[in-house]
Design a binder for these strands. Structure first.
Lengths: 337, 337
DNA sequence: TTGAAAGCGCTAACAC
DNA sequence: GTGTTAGCGCTTTCAA
């Protein structure tokens, strides 16, 4: 790459000191600088095509105007959507994002946090995997500005977060299915210790008990690694077995895709034979043969809020913000009876 | 954030000079440093929890170990998939990615390039929108290392790129449809001046002429902005109108999603009533009621290669690399007769 | 074996 | 109004 012009170059060319150039170009102390000198400096600067050296500025100010974003997987629709919103919002505030995918793996997560800290990001937005409490505590101790997104940890109470009310989201799904005359709904979710998924389950369990009777078999968990095979088996059993389940609620968009794939494969009729509700929206639902009912998170609000909260902290706020958004059920034919 | 420990802190604590600390911690001139001193320095460093100041290093070395990635839209499946691969590969080489979405908008693209240059990225990977030749020429002139991905511009011949053979990809689709007894195939694509999309069309046109007869109505273009409505109308006309089209080829994954959605909506039988081939893979195809035939790009190869090529340039190579990969047709029931 | 010192490009307190 | 200077944390030349 070509060498950039520096303040020194401009100073030399304009016959003034570096200080003055710095002042003029940053608009500082401008009131007591000779107008002509200022103009001349600006002219030389633009003639030499000056752009400030970001790194030098960062070193001096100890601020990089860079934020880190750690998510599970950038190629997952939910995260890429939120990433896009965060990116735009950061851009708007003159920050850049560096990102990394932790694959729900606590070691990878820790590695990424380390990388970001070494890069001296001004703050981090993170969707933390299970068992990452240690790392989060470390961040707190080091006074690194960070905000949790999507999930939080009850044991970490001094961290800001922006999440949705997962309990209520699922409870409302139970109610929705009841309103639509379904009798035997089951939620399929991932075997996970993540609090937000637990809450999603708890909400459906409570809702189930309230609307469908006091049983304890409203939830079925599947291990993430065996998702594909397991879910086909599970669905077959539920539909054709003794339980006569008449509606399924998939608790994440990943599970939803697998579940819908199985339903398509077995040519199960939705909603006649089986009602379906999915978590999270997806363009892809439209290619399913029935329009899909889904729980919609306010992605834009979440993304904007998380950047706002983080920048507050970066700028010195000591306040811990806990923002909880509500979800909406977008009704499709898949759960209409 | 807490203040970091610096070389100076270590030097003071260990009673040596900063130089020595720098040498030891970077493993330089290690052969002529007293082993005990070295050990002591390392001990102090770890005791004080030293991590090097990346910014200072960058300033000194004029290298940030950061790469920029500009794509159309990170929330688009194709780009988020490739982003994930690039991210991993960069990580592997101790580089970080900052990214931005240009939305196929030349102004936004230019803006992002500017931002990245100001950030002094060591190199840029870009999926450039139409009419961005000016910006690319500027990058060439400034000797900024960059590699084009997905699309290239015939008029810019000194830029490295990693792409697929779009002509051949589409030609093979025509052949595939012919092999499967289809008679009247049409390709639906975007109205676009992008060379790679043009090539995709040209391939199908040539293939069509070769396999289905010398006509000139093999391609239908739709404007991106009106995609949703337009495509429904188009498909209806093609199927139920005079043309008796019996197979559709969707030229991008975005069009494919829209097209499949329309097909699902109209309850068109695939493949009996209509054969379907899509460009690019998508998990979501599985929830369509028929398994989908698609053109598969070697994403992993592309992503790995583009990082490799870029790092070569970053490290001083003057060679212009033009890498063209081939695609594969993954056959599903949607085009089997 | 070790260290002093210059300098990467910039900011800002403090002269003049 | 303008300039001198110190210093952010690091690397590296040169001298000791």
């Amino acid at each position: 790459m070509k060498k950039k012009t520096s303040l020194k170059d401009i100073a030399r060319e304009a016959g003034v000191s570096v200080t003055l150039v710095s002042y003029v170009l940053n608009g500082k102390n401008i009131e007591r600088i000779n107008a002509d000198t200022a103009t001349r400096i600006r002219e030389v600067a633009s003639k030499l095509n000056y752009t400030p050296n970001f790194i030098a500025k960062s070193l001096k100010k100890n601020k990089t105007y860079t934020l880190g974003l750690i998510i599970a997987d950038i190629s997952n629709l939910f995260y890429s959507s939120i990433a896009r919103i965060i990116e735009d919002k950061a851009q708007e505030n003159n920050y850049n994002m560096i990102f990394g995918s932790a694959d729900e793996n606590m070691e990878k997560f820790k590695g990424l946090v380390d990388v970001f800290l070494r890069r001296q990001v001004d703050g981090i937005i993170l969707a933390a995997p299970a068992h990452s409490e240690e790392t989060l505590k470390y961040l707190s101790e080091q006074r690194v500005p960070f905000v949790l997104i999507d999930r939080f940890f009850p044991s970490i109470d001094d961290a800001s977060f922006v999440v949705i009310d997962n309990f209520k989201a699922s409870y409302k799904v139970a109610e929705h299915l009841h309103d639509n005359q379904f009798k035997h709904p089951v939620m399929i979710t991932l075997t996970s210790e993540l609090h937000h998924l637990r809450e999603r389950s708890r909400g459906f369990e409570e809702g189930g008990k309230h609307f469908f009777g006091d049983r304890s078999d409203y939830i079925i968990t599947v291990e993430e690694e065996k998702l594909s095979g397991e879910i086909e088996k599970t669905i077959k059993e539920l539909i054709y077995g003794d339980r006569q389940v008449d509606a399924l609620y998939f608790s994440t968009n990943k599970i939803a895709m697998e579940g819908l794939a199985a339903i398509a494969k077995f040519k199960i009729k939705v909603p006649d034979q089986l009602g379906v509700v999915c978590f999270d929206e997806a363009d892809a639902y439209r290619i399913f043969n029935t329009s899909i009912t889904y729980v919609k998170q306010p992605l834009k609000k979440i993304g904007d809020q998380v950047v706002k909260t983080l920048l507050n902290i970066v700028e010195g706020s000591k306040e811990v913000e806990h923002v909880v958004f509500n979800t909406k059920i977008i009704s499709g034919e898949s759960s209409e009876r």
